[in-house]
Nucleic acid binder design. Structure first.
Lengths: 227, 227
DNA sequence: CTCGTTCATTGATCGAAATCAAATAAGACT
DNA sequence: AGTCTTATTTGATTTCGATCAATGAACGAG
């Protein structure tokens, strides 16, 4: 963690709107703000590693954090990608155990960190915080269920098509948008090798999708849904 | 749900030792016991379906519950398998939304159900319950992360070997044990077609594993680890 | 603007597991 | 025990995506 600091006005703002804090009462927000520490991370820096004693809760303010697990041979499998406002679910280790995965900044990022012990103390007297944690986790659990099922049921072009449909701002209509991060990151998030993502994109060109750099144009959303 | 009833002595016992209730204070336990309803399910009966409004929290007392997602063509992908004492994480929908997956009894089962609205009410005044929920969810999240990574990194024989190692009571030593459920269920849990599981078992025969029905004998745990 | 590095695309090959099909084994119920 | 149903195994084929290798494009630093 490069620079450590108390939250400034800008970070406060993001933090207040984050999934974790947005539903809290004022007193719980104050208690959490009290213990928040902001850190800025350069790209590729680790937040925590699989197996380390878990002592911090993390929340992304800006940038993206990639969470992955390692294989004995060093191969990596991404399990989640967290963006601005997200509580890093893999860092919610409430029983004093160890992190079950590694978290790495995928680009320069601003992260809020909370001492887990203190979070536990606050949550033990403030049900709204405990519920906010449970809420965030239940949402993440169902998202992971969705990607697990997606992995097992759909081909690469189908997963990419689904990603595009759910991330295109013009919901249901033709339109353009910009991928929020590198294609290699997207590939990891979708459980694909970068080559497979590339091939999926080129297959989708026959279905009304055009890609130039990070710019994606969807010509026929219905065709995409039928892939 | 076939028979509905208040918990009897036997069910109370299991419930008290379950992941959800075991860490609660006496008053929270009492409050939860108050609203618990026990139901017995025949094999194959659904507890809830993907997309239904979520109004109940479920906890398995006996038997196994398979949670899966459906594909437009009707294909199924198992995302989790819950056994005795497990809180069904997919039924923890705290924001009043809908179930994100379908839950089906894999064999005749006894299930404790709690009205979600009332659980929310209790948790809103009792931090220990909210924390127990968060705890259960964080544990499940990390287990799902593990299976997602396992899926992406390991071959079928490797996943089966890993399963056997972690489920063999004689931890680390040679020994026998009985699979807790049908092989087709295990296949689903591991994200494999039943045929693939069968082939994985026959491959493992060359590595000191013998299988007869549900009976598995592990001759050389170290060999399994090296698969 | 240009160099140099990282990222993305494309091609060729290979391996793993799904799928289809059929035979065998195991259970459940009379 | 005998029958009927459901599980499991085994074989043949096919598809998908990983991997290896090489080229081409994009981007940041000087």
């Amino acid at each position: 963690m490069n620079r450590l600091m108390k939250p400034g006005a800008r970070e406060r703002e993001t933090l207040l709107n984050s999934g974790l804090l947005s539903a809290l009462g004022v007193e719980s927000v104050a208690a959490m703000m009290e213990i928040a520490v902001i850190g800025s991370l350069p790209a590729r820096q680790m937040l925590f590693r699989e197996g380390e004693a878990a002592d911090m809760l993390h929340c992304v303010l800006s940038g993206y954090v990639r969470v992955y697990k390692l294989d004995p041979d060093g191969r990596e499998a991404d399990v989640e990608l967290y963006g601005p406002g997200d509580l890093i679910g893999a860092s919610v280790v409430l029983d004093g155990g160890r992190y079950g995965a590694t978290a790495q900044a995928a680009e320069p990022s601003l992260i809020a960190r909370f001492d887990l012990k203190r979070v536990r103390d606050i949550a033990a007297r403030r049900p709204d915080l405990a519920m906010a944690l449970a809420n965030a986790l239940s949402g993440q659990l169902s998202r992971v269920f969705a990607s697990l099922a997606d992995d097992r049921l759909h081909t690469a072009p189908q997963r990419v098509a689904h990603y595009l449909l759910t991330h295109c701002p013009a919901d249901g209509r033709a339109g353009s948008f910009r991928l929020p991060y590198q294609k290699s990151l997207l590939a990891g998030k979708l459980g694909l090798a970068p080559e497979a993502l590339s091939r999926a994109f080129s297959m989708l060109r026959n279905h009304g999708v055009s890609v130039r750099g990070r710019l994606v144009h969807i010509g026929d959303p219905d065709a995409l849904r039928r892939i």
